[in-house]
Nucleic acid binder design. Structure first.
Lengths: 357, 357
DNA sequence: TTGTACGCGTTATCAC
DNA sequence: GTGATAACGCGTACAA
């Protein structure tokens, strides 16, 4: 007989059945709470007969241990916090999916926090997560200032912390990054192999990742082509506006024959920008890829649904998340062993997906 | 002087400073823990002088209350669980954003759980959330079987539960839904006003929402045109495959002149399908919107980045989330008052966004 | 193999 | 205004 969800008569009036506790189980089974605890956790020997009784009582009462109480005493919540600058962004949500899949398998749950890209929000939310005794925190694409000024280093001293797609030399933290070096190089070599004579580069405003890509691009221009780099700069790199800004930027670039006449390829820092360029080119009647090649980054869904489909560098975003999650588990499980390096930098490989542009 | 993050000498060896507790504060301030608690919560009068002392001690120790302990005694965690069939889907992540924004403002944190659309996962994860004593659960697009078989009704009896985009007649739960009725009607009337003579309809496999749209569509065909409905059915409604399936489906439909010759408009159940149709039409050399009008649903980013930009019905996904969140707060705050209806059905208005198709 | 008693860090209760 | 002390539900030394 299941008696959960029933009503009891107490002190003359009906009251709703409270969630049963380990004490209730102990009483019903006629043993001590210690024994019940042992049956649940299987960490000490209990006779087969007693085990049976206890399990029967657990079943009857529909007992589920209160994880709050367990966490309080064990100082372990099986919970992590995940900070992201935006939930609806295609890139980040893939990363979150990767984190969640991995952590879910290990029986961890995660608090998802949307910082909206504000550095104060990052600090406030981390504070709130610390109050909730999370076992660790994964931060996606944090504001650089919070890395540089040592804030995250301080947090990393108190609790396992992994930073995805952020980095600053000399800061002692655990980083997981895209391998933008080889990814960008691969894309550029591909374009040259396809016959590109001169390549332009489109990026958004400050971001660690754009900086790296630009550096590689500039070196490539000098080493391989002996030409000056041509850089198209838009403001917003990662939002709804990006597509339009990229489109407008490309339109005026194409209009300026002086500047654009040699250009037969554009490397864009992400797929949104690439779509914008693609739309502008179509408007201008520029043949893709005969007159102009376009390559994006990220392999988000948008690169797959455009027509022609976009050539792009796959950042394996989901893997980026699962790698960070794996690192997190490592850190949590070896928390006491201070032998662990206070600083690691893991690069996740990328690969070029050649489509129709 | 901040003494957090320092090291103490205890029993002859250095040990790391533990997070300080209310007791530490009480000792340092020379008062009882009761008084400290009162200062923190401001729920009972404390003399100004004492308050000052306590706050100074709190500051010095960098004390932050342990929310776990508070939750244990108050039976309130300021935490909800959010279940979604997929994290990376554009539709769901907008809904999640809406939930998160609203709940964040109320100082709630949320556990995000990815069910991957499996009914067993839904039940397992809800179990896990109950063990963690969440104050409520919001479920996005749950499996219909779990609604029909009374599972969610049972959960709803134990804890505040809000279901987004799921419904079954007679089930006593709190539902928040898109107003597919008026949205679909508006789209159809728009097409007719634009001069459409015969409209086709594309949908995916079983979904409450597709069923409603189809019913409205069929009625419209009979009432307004006195023609038979033309339904294009694809399998996967909500994934990466959708675009391609829609494209292939539309291609063979266009190829079949017998069937398609009268059709000058297609209403698609979501933006992915609309993009597929758009791509197929372009391939076939069909002029958009002169020869064929296309309307999608959801106003996801994909409808904004295609060229021509898609006309679509905005489902206000983010508002769908915030509405559910508001309802959740209501339920949590009036938990004891059983006066609340055990069943509500809130419809979120939609509106047509006319673009270029 | 089992049970007693204490502690985790708070808030609630009651007395002063 | 303030302080002892009992809860909350569980895990675990220690004793038996």
């Amino acid at each position: 007989m299941k008696i959960e969800n029933l009503f009891y008569m107490i002190g003359g009036e009906f009251v709703e059945n409270k969630r049963s506790t380990i004490t209730d189980v102990a009483k019903l089974a006629g043993v001590s709470i210690t024994t019940v605890s042992r049956v649940i956790n299987k960490n000490y020997p209990v006779s087969e007969k007693t085990t049976k009784h206890v399990n029967k009582a657990i079943e009857e009462l529909g007992f589920r241990p209160n994880l709050l109480a367990r966490s309080l005493i064990q100082d372990k919540t099986q919970t992590i916090g995940v900070l992201t600058p935006s939930i609806e962004n295609l890139f980040f949500s893939e990363v979150i999916k990767g984190i969640d899949n991995f952590m879910g398998d290990q029986d961890y749950r995660s608090f998802l926090c949307n910082t909206k890209g504000h550095p104060e929000n990052e600090r406030e939310m981390i504070d709130s997560l610390l109050n909730r005794s999370v076992d660790g925190i994964i931060v996606i694409d944090p504001r650089n200032e919070n890395i540089k000024n040592g804030y995250y280093e301080g947090i990393s001293n108190r609790i396992p912390l992994v930073i995805i797609n952020g980095y600053h030399e000399g800061i002692q933290c655990h980083f997981v990054l895209n391998d933008d070096y080889t990814g960008t190089g691969e894309a550029l070599r591909h374009l040259k192999r396809q016959g590109a004579k001169r390549i332009a580069f489109m990026r958004g405003e400050k971001s660690h990742s754009y900086d790296i890509k630009e550096a590689i691009y500039e070196k490539f221009c000098m080493d391989e082509y002996q030409t000056e780099p041509v850089i198209l700069l838009i403001e917003e790199g990662n939002g709804l506006e990006t597509v339009n800004q990229a489109k407008e930027c490309a339109k005026s670039f194409f209009a300026n024959r002086e500047k654009s006449k040699d250009i037969d390829a554009i490397l864009c820092c992400n797929d949104f920008m690439a779509v914008g360029v693609l739309n502008a080119a179509r408007l201008q009647g520029i043949q893709i890829p005969h007159q102009l090649s376009i390559v994006g980054f990220d392999n988000t869904i948008v690169s797959q649904i455009t027509d022609p489909a976009l050539t792009t560098v796959d950042h394996h975003m989901s893997q980026l998340g699962s790698t960070a999650a794996r690192q997190m588990i490592q850190l949590i499980e070896n928390k006491d062993q201070k032998k662990l390096s206070p600083c690691t930098k893991i690069m996740v490989a990328t690969n070029l997906i050649v489509r129709q542009t």
